[in-house]
Design a protein around this nucleic acid. Structure first.
Lengths: 346, 346
DNA sequence: TTTAGCACTCCATCACAGAGAGTGCCAAAC
DNA sequence: GTTTGGCACTCTCTGTGATGGAGTGCTAAA
């Protein structure tokens, strides 16, 4: 976090400038600020302050003789120091609650899908959700089900109730009783361990399980890699891309192409979301902070949510020029409602 | 299929015009055709023929005094009557085979993902695959596994080895023995039925199963809807969107935005792919034929592939101005190799 | 039936001018 | 010392011709 100290006037002007620019998408001149907002200051005075702000790198001119536009750092200071979260209206929150807690979401998966699209709809930005990170959870149990002569379905459950499955192929078929016994032995051995620990040294933990089928154990260990780590394509949900294409910042062909590329590289997006996770509370990440060239014209507002002991991330992505005051509340409220709903489900 | 009868000269000119336009993306004039390709005809003669072609609606001028560009119908006639599939080179086919049959694709899911990206890479267009249509398969068996006190995992397998799972929540917990008995009874009752038939009248078929748990049956019937119909988001894979953004036809902001919308509406895409399925062989669908405003500037080359008794669709989507001769072979070969690999896996 | 010739149309590019918006700075006012 | 009015300056944006070039359609001759 950058520490920029501003006097009252500078703060006020920066605040109004950002807010006005967010609305209009046009560089903001001294005249507008002086007239539209009753500052009691002449344009000339405002111009002086604007020069100061520019010297500190908080605003810039697209070209000489244009108004000012916030820089990344300007947005940063705005959200860190000047942002007044805009309370969500009562009816709006009710609608949100209703959508999220609506009947029919009988699976986490589905609830997340719904939440993503709700987020996109009310934010008018791109809604994103990342499924809970499995590795924070505590192992509950594993089931091995033979679904065909040479196919075994692995089912791993964690304490909070999350389930993950993987279909593996065996070269040979194995007797049911052997499968059952092996599963039982695995469950005994792994009880109470966190998934993160399992990822680290699963092979070590199960190598001397007497009475278990070695091939099955081997299979389980091999599969656990893809089963325990977060698999990007499924874990990440996106909704509302179309909300972005209309925004003036994406009139530019190259920027729009960048967005498309960004959306295609899902691993990078997952990483972006995970990077934003600092434990709790809303996080705003702006432009270059996203560490992705394609995402440079964007900003992201995220919040963690929890499902029992594990947690995931939801948020929105839009142009830097977004209504932070409103979106912070929207994302926060959504995360809160989602957590509540998940708690109810388990 | 439109029946357009052309004389030799008209065919030749249309063919060259399409081929040249596909390469250059610029309207084709009579001069170029006369000089570049040894037709032994003067530009004036070619102009006359071009006028004829225009009257028949096969080519058009973007504006007076520009060269000609194929119309949708022009492309249609080209692919129906004039297309000479370009054989894929030996090394290229080898590379393709190697990629598809490479070690590590131990699940259908994964193999399809890989195939999609391979298609995108070698075609330089958007690669798409649609998972096998579950409803053509024959029911093999169902397993009910209690993974937590109030959660039951449904596992349905079809004869060709495809597996689908769904987690459902029970309000109350049910005894293991009851679950096992119910599963056994369901399996007896449903043996040999196709999934399509199940979708139609599952409730009817299982309503009088004596000895089974009514709540479980109820749950099974409720879940089957989402379990048996093809769930769009998972069944459809897309890869290579970035291949499209560079193409000259998508320089236009509106067109590019249309593409993004098209990609977002996955159900529409699934439908487009399914519509193209006429049983067997390569299908080329052009522009308006895709029945989607956003997809209007595009064309699609698809082929079915089979996995045991069920079949799915793979293909590529790109601008209408694409190299059909090459892509037809690419898609066909890929489908063939994929089918072969799937056969090997079962 | 083919082709050469020619008038015509339309696009693309460029230069240029004028209006408008907004700045920076200076000197005067508070 | 701070604020403000005035003013010159800069840069963008828009519209207007002018020009060159590509390609056509048509006609008349080969």
């Amino acid at each position: 976090m950058v520490t920029v100290v501003l006097n009252d006037r500078e703060r006020e002007i920066l605040r109004l400038l950002v807010e006005h620019y967010v609305q209009t998408a046009e560089p903001v001149g001294s005249r507008v600020l002086s007239q539209k907002y009753a500052l009691g200051l002449s344009p000339a005075t405002i111009r002086n302050t604007m020069q100061d702000l520019e010297e500190r790198g908080l605003v810039k001119q697209p070209h000489t003789s244009a108004g000012r536009v916030p820089t990344d750092m300007g947005y940063r200071v705005f959200v860190d120091q000047l942002l007044k979260p805009q309370p969500i209206s009562g009816p709006e929150e009710d609608a949100l609650r209703e959508l999220i807690s609506a009947e029919g979401s009988h699976a986490v998966e589905e609830l997340l899908s719904k939440t993503t699209s709700v987020l996109a709809t009310i934010s008018h930005e791109l809604g994103v959700t990342l499924a809970p990170r499995f590795d924070q959870g505590v192992f509950s149990n594993v089931e091995l089900v033979q679904v065909a002569s040479n196919k075994i379905l692995l089912i791993i459950t964690v304490k909070s109730g999350l389930v993950r499955t993987l279909l593996v192929e065996a070269d040979i078929s194995i007797e049911d009783t052997v499968i059952d016994r092996t599963a039982r032995l695995l469950n005994e051995r792994l009880a109470g361990v966190t998934i993160g620990e399992l990822q680290a040294n699963l092979g070590e933990r199960v190598k001397d399980l007497s009475g278990a089928d070695a091939r099955l154990i081997r299979m389980f260990v091999d599969a656990s890699d893809s089963l325990l780590s977060v698999p990007a394509p499924e874990a990440l949900k996106l909704e509302g891309t179309t909300n972005l294409v209309g925004k003036p910042e994406f009139k530019d062909h190259a920027k729009l192409a960048g967005i498309i590329q960004m959306l295609e590289q899902r691993e990078a997006l997952v990483e972006m979301l995970q990077n934003s996770d600092v434990g709790e509370g809303i996080v705003i990440t702006i432009g270059k902070e996203l560490k992705d060239t394609n995402a440079e014209p964007c900003a992201m507002v995220t919040s963690p949510y929890t499902a029992g002991r594990v947690s995931g991330t939801i948020g929105i992505i839009g142009p830097k020029r977004m209504n932070y005051a409103r979106l912070v509340t929207v994302v926060e409220t959504t995360a809160r409602l989602l957590t509540k709903q998940l708690k109810k489900m388990f």
